[in-house]
Design a protein around this nucleic acid. Sequence first.
DNA 1: GTAGAGGCTGCCGCAGCGGCAGCTTCAACC
DNA 2: GGTTGAAGCTGCCGCTGCGGCAGCCTCTAC
Lengths: 253, 253
Amino acid sequence: MAWPTAEVARMSGVTARTLRHYDEVGLLPPAWIGSNGYRYYEERQLLRLQQILVLRELGVGLTEIGRVLAEQVDELDALRGHRSRLLAERDRLQGLAETVSRTIAELEQSRKDGNPMTSINRPENLFEGIRPEMYQDSLRDFPELAEATEQRVATMSEAEVEAGQRQRTAQMIRLAELMAAGRPVDADEVQAEIDAQYRALAEMHAVSAEEHRAIGRACVDNEQWRAAYEAIAPGLATYQRDAIEVYATTRLS
Amino acid sequence: MAWPTAEVARMSGVTARTLRHYDEVGLLPPAWIGSNGYRYYEERQLLRLQQILVLRELGVGLTEIGRVLAEQVDELDALRGHRSRLLAERDRLQGLAETVSRTIAELEQSRKDGNPMTSINRPENLFEGIRPEMYQDSLRDFPELAEATEQRVATMSEAEVEAGQRQRTAQMIRLAELMAAGRPVDADEVQAEIDAQYRALAEMHAVSAEEHRAIGRACVDNEQWRAAYEAIAPGLATYQRDAIEVYATTRLS
DNA sequence: GTAGAGGCTGCCGCAGCGGCAGCTTCAACC
DNA sequence: GGTTGAAGCTGCCGCTGCGGCAGCCTCTAC
């Protein structure tokens, strides 16, 4: 069974032009070409096209798609991978929708209050779910910890990774609220937050008191981390460092 | 509170270059520009940026985004709209993932059987969830019905529309299976399928026996419809038409 | 005062097609 | 066997949405 270009176009929803393009760049050569130059596709090509379109949905570039499909030995494995990435993307959109929901709630609140913007300075969370990386990058300052988290991340689905990032951001915001409320770094609530952070860390890799202090200092010294903290609230980076200092001294000695 | 470019870039995850670009094209002018030419953004701009990014996620072009944001009077309404579109997109991805799941299942089946492709010739459903329109377009041959469905569609969420399309495709496939199994068009199972189709139609707009026959003939005569049926299985278009003929004669007279 | 981060304005380039033009080919009907 | 309409083909040009320079300015901060 073989189909000409227009037929494939109708079945798949792409244009004939696109199919020609995919042939041009070598991404999807037809099964065979007639003596008249016509392109004919068979089932294998349709399957490949489906995979291409799925990857394209995910924003993968055509050349990248080519490499992925070339490397992949087992079609079933590849499809399973695509499916899980689709679901992860779905979850990401879900998270985005939640962020928008929060913005809506805030806007409704401030409309009721009458004052234009009630939020303590946290524009950062307007964008939750849009930024990725950030953490992995900066973690290089702590090699063993970086390795441990990397291994951990490898076992998690993308959705779980995203969820973890949201949790960390939420923690930072709670800390910012405590700081804004004027709580000293040795206040119980603050130390409880730090404790939660520490437990999350220790779960992946043992962390000594001294290491924990080093991480605290990195909140201020590391470019990216400090920037992330300061963007949420000015002074948050040092606040976090000092809170960790107290925690390490009083509870990890 | 005002932020310079880099700060906004870090908060939102876009690059400074992008922000400059959005200014250039008039999509997101900064709140004000310093005497030194520096761009400064305030909360309103951040909110707008969030909306821009959400729409961009949905594949809307920048100029289109500009128009949408310009027309929108109430920010809250707009945000609610974005959220629902995000959720619809999420559902679409879900549907896509399901399509991939089906392909996986089929492939696993054929791998067990040992024969390379066991599916009755139905490449069409490889792409479910990727194609839109098709039906609306061809329905123009039946003006009142077209209008009725149009009104109906307007009251449904995008997810519901998608679901409807999937259902119709599923119906077509069931019919193809009955045909492949050699059932005559007046067999009970076949007539039951047609009955389900008829009820779905009649729910939107009264359909007389003669009109129903006309729709049946359109399955063969209308370019797009016939193509859609034939792509699933050769002969399906006439099979459907004949089944409708029988149905109209025996049950609608 | 000088170092380093961050700004700015051009300008070039690239991916992923859309949309032609100009010509051939196919299938079907008369 | 001639015509007609849909579908093919091969260029080639253009657009969008930035990335990535270069070249130069400016703002803290020590």
